[in-house]
Amino acid sequence: MLAFIVKRLIQSMLILLGVTFITFALLYLLPADPVRQIAGRSATPETVANIRAQLGLDQPFVVQYLRYLGNLVQGDLGRSYLQKTEVSALIASRLPASLLLMLGAIVCELVLGITMGVIAALRRGTSTDNALMMVSFVGVSAPQFVVGLLMLYVFAVQLQWFPIGGYGTISHMVLPSVTLGILGAGWYSRMMRSSMIDVLRQDFIRTARAKGLGRMRVLLRHALPNAILPIIAMIGIDVGIFMSGIVVVESVFGWPGIGQLAWQAIQRVDIPIIMGVTLVSACAIVIGNLVADIASLFADPRIKVR
């Protein structure tokens, strides 16, 4: 197990290094000039050149990238061009809100997806099964910004069950969590249905039923723990999906997380913030996949470590 974890950590470091290089290269080739954003439209060419030299943006790509890596090793993510604040401080102030939203979305997608998948498997071929799979298809296909706006209109504006936006209470968290979790719930329900149908056909399920065990006991104690294994492996991948969708959801609901911070930075071409948020997101994806792999090993001893 220790060798497996060390191997995965080395792979993760290489992945993160690749992420920094690709992101830095794309931002270097970006047509938009961050110096113009800082200096303003009325700035003279001399002022623009001075700012570019102060930020080190007049240096070749290799020099800029190596300097960034050197600062990164020391834990320095740089300073925001426009806010004049350390990027690490900005991310640290926004990260708890995003992690809280992500936790709520994971709970939402697991509850909805597993419940729908199990019911659909038990009612296979019926109208209930067809209806649930149709709902899951809509959840997977619908754009998150459309789902978010519909959630706001129905449950916040018309029914007034939840606040329109903001942050601070559980009621503020419900709508963005459900919006972010609907996509995963659609995938999980379809996957759970297929996995549950396959498990219910296994010999050990027939043996458990032959011993006289009740239906719920067979389902909860024997079928569900085995059928849920693919779901556990998918949770780590979902972190990446959340990191991509969280920008839209946080913007729609006014949620003060790193997604909203990234969107503001993209609009202003604030490269240090974009790099910092991308790196933190990549770290979250890597850690999520590592935790999911380890959890799968504990959940199913039959899985061999390589």
Rank of each mutant, 00 (worst) to 15 (best):
N130Y: 11
R193F: 07
I170T: 12
T128M: 00
L99S: 00
L159F: 14
I170W: 15
A265R: 05
I273K: 05
G113H: 00
I164T: 15
R302I: 00
S281E: 06
L9T: 12
I232S: 12
P225N: 01
V269W: 06
L99Y: 08
F298N: 03
L27A: 01
V87G: 05
L213A: 06
R209Y: 03
R215W: 04
K84Q: 07
L55P: 04
Q158P: 02
A210F: 10
I231M: 06
G166I: 08
R67D: 13
G148N: 13
A131G: 00
I182E: 01
V199T: 14
T126N: 07
A262Q: 10
R193Q: 12
I232C: 03
K211A: 14
F137M: 07
L150E: 02
F298M: 00
I241H: 04
R201L: 08
V63I: 13
I287W: 07
Q267M: 03
A120T: 05
R201T: 01
V269N: 13
L66E: 09
H222W: 15
F204R: 09
V154M: 15
R306C: 01
F24M: 10
I91N: 05
L180H: 04
A282R: 01
P272V: 03
F21Q: 06
D58R: 13
N130G: 09
I119W: 07
K304L: 11
V19M: 15
V118N: 06
D129Q: 11
A292M: 14
A156N: 02
L99G: 00
L16R: 03
I232N: 07
I231W: 03
G40P: 05
F21A: 11
R215H: 14
S171E: 13
G70T: 02
L219R: 06
I38G: 02
V154E: 14
V286H: 00
K7Y: 08
G236W: 03
Q83L: 11
V269D: 02
V252S: 03
G254P: 12
R215T: 11
L175P: 02
A210N: 08
T126Q: 10
M1I: 11
S281P: 02
M133C: 00
R217A: 06
A89Q: 15
W255C: 06
N71T: 04
L132S: 03
V174T: 01
S177L: 05
F162H: 05
I231R: 09
I235P: 12
A39D: 07
T207C: 12
Q160R: 14
L150G: 12
G245D: 12
I231F: 01
D76A: 13
A43H: 13
N289S: 03
P34T: 10
I15T: 13
L14N: 03
K304R: 11
S195F: 02
V305D: 13
V280S: 09
C283Y: 09
M216Q: 15
G240H: 01
V111M: 14
V147R: 04
Q202P: 07
L110P: 07
F145W: 08
M133F: 04
R206A: 08
A43V: 00
S98T: 14
L175K: 01
A105E: 06
L229F: 09
Q160F: 01
R209P: 09
L180E: 09
D198R: 00
